[in-house]
Amino acid sequence: MSNSAKIIIVLTVITLFSGGVLALLDNFTAPKIKAHQEEVKNRALRAALPDNDRVQEVTKGDYRFYAAYRGDEMVALAFEASGGGYQSELRLMVGVTPDFSTITGAVILEQVETPGLGTKIQEDPANKENPGWFMGQFTGLRTEPEISYVKNEEPGNDHEVRAITGATISSKAVVNILNEHIKKAEAAWNE
């Protein structure tokens, strides 16, 4: 057997073996992985939207909206918003009332901010009772005239949140992303 033939045969066998194993593996891991992804999305939607009977997906403009219905009445809309944080891209799931005037809930889908600082927008280990206090502030927040933040004090207005000490930029980024995308999403929805 010539050497090149041997090379071809050996590589083919190894590759076939590899492909076979992976195909087998995919058969039973793929559903599980998909389920996990669904789970993540559903959890986010549950947090962003109020109680509902069903959620319907609608695509309008650049946005994919998740419309929540209670009976036939649409109670809220959720959509994904993203933008630059302090050192990473932030992805959020935002829920708003159908008139876009009040936030029904917002959660972070993805962030890789500075550990221990920027990550507090998702989870603040210092606050044992309520680690998600920062995003929790957005529930029920008015979007008019515009969401803003205050530092080192309790917010006095219904469109204000309290920024995280030491992570002002990350806090500011969340506020900016929301302001920008709520306006854009409103325009897209009403088209």
């Binding site: 992976l22 593996l25 995919d26 891991t29 599980k32 992985i33 996990h36």
Partner: peptide, 10 residues
């Protein structure tokens, strides 16, 4: 890939 898929799944 096997390890990766396992971790992702479980």
């Amino acid at each position: 890939t096997i390890a990766d898929r396992f971790l992702a799944a479980y």
